[in-house]
């Protein structure tokens, strides 16, 4: 019943539209797809016409169609020439998809987990600078190398607006080039069945214009040691906020509830004692566009619903229902998580 298109998927970019390229790598894939589709239509029409003539045609047409000459032309020469041209053209068109990165590109390691994506921004030496989950921010017009890895089973990384899909295979690292030529939110999905809630393993990519991108980066790295230019507070991702939200009357300590209810065993929040690595990093969860790995908008209501009963939303996911918490306790935790930016 969820309708594609409209304002609905534009809100946080999920589910992603296919055949709507926003960069050069997705562009060549889309072109190839349309050409293959068009040629397929033409060949189908030829075959249907031949079948029609073979049944209803005159005797002379029938004998021509059934002759050796027709087999040589229609069965060998025609497909041989068409497929050869298509192969050479297709390889040339998609050569950029497999080109070796120059080494100057921004690098991000994305690791697939059942059923979410761990995102690590790397420096030129390959060290992790910034860690996030289920969301990738990148500058417009710049190629970005994504190192694809897996923590468990085979996943496949696919942001249809930005590139083709590539597998995330346990024990090895695949490299994928993506590039967005316009600012916007582009949804991604896991494109290789990986068990249980595979269909609800989503991802959100946000492409920023250059000044916006610099601000975003400074904002995210402001608290990190050794990162220069910490004085510009960035603000790019505006979360849905309710002007009428009353001052929080909730007297409970969300931070303490988070630490004492077991959340910290699986989730890391940098700067606190929460250092679990089994689930998504929540250091910047208050800035995130989505919850549950790309599938829900991020607001207080969805956060409470997810924590309290995530199994009804994403059945089989590895987070248990925290239905022993009261609504007030859920709200206190949600309020504290909103502040983790």
């Amino acid at each position: 019943m969820v309708e594609a298109g409209s304002a609905f998927d534009a809100w946080w970019g999920w589910p992603p539209p296919v055949l709507d390229p926003a960069g050069p790598y997705a562009d060549s894939v889309t072109t190839l797809a349309w050409v293959l589709f068009g040629l397929g239509v033409i060949v189908t029409l030829i075959v249907v016409a031949a079948v029609y003539l073979a049944v209803n045609g005159s005797k002379r047409t029938k004998s021509k169609l059934g002759g050796e000459r027709a087999v040589w032309i229609g069965g060998i020469a025609f497909p041989g020439i068409v497929l050869t041209i298509l192969l050479v053209w297709g390889l040339a068109l998609t050569a950029s998809l497999t080109k070796t990165p120059t080494g100057d590109e921004m690098r991000v390691r994305v690791t697939g987990h059942m059923w979410w994506f761990d995102v690590e921004y790397l420096d030129s030496a390959g060290n992790v600078v910034l860690r996030d989950s289920n969301e990738l921010h990148l500058p417009v017009g710049e190629p970005v190398v994504i190192e694809l890895a897996s923590a468990d089973v085979i996943h496949s990384f696919w942001v249809p607006n930005l590139s083709g899909k590539e597998d995330m295979i346990p024990g090895r690292v695949n490299e994928l080039l993506v590039q967005a030529d316009k600012a916007g939110r582009f949804g991604g999905i896991c494109a290789e069945y990986c068990g249980g809630p595979h269909a609800l393993m989503g991802f959100v990519t946000v492409a920023h214009g250059s000044s916006e991108w610099r601000e975003w980066w400074k904002d995210r790295t402001r608290s990190l040691p050794g990162i220069a230019d910490q004085d510009v507070p960035g603000e790019t991702v505006v979360l849905a906020s309710n002007p009428a939200t009353p001052p929080d009357l909730n007297p409970l300590d969300g931070r303490q509830l988070f630490m004492n209810s077991g959340c910290a065993a699986c989730h890391r929040v940098a700067g606190t004692e929460a250092n679990g690595l089994a689930g998504p990093d929540l250091t910047h969860v208050g800035n995130r566009l989505s919850l549950g790995a790309g599938i829900l908008p991020n607001n207080r209501g969805t956060m409470m619903g997810w924590i309290g009963n995530s199994q009804s939303i994403k059945p089989g996911n590895r987070m248990p229902n925290y239905d022993m918490l009261s609504a007030d306790e859920l709200e206190a935790i949600a309020i504290w998580l909103e502040q983790q930016k």
């Binding site: 969820v2 609905f8 809100w11 209501g301 969805t302 619903g305 009963n309």
Partner: peptide
């Protein structure tokens, strides 16, 4: 209905 889907009322 569009608004309901956009803000995720269905989460609960």
């Amino acid at each position: 209905l569009e608004v309901i889907e956009r803000v995720g009322c269905g989460a609960c």
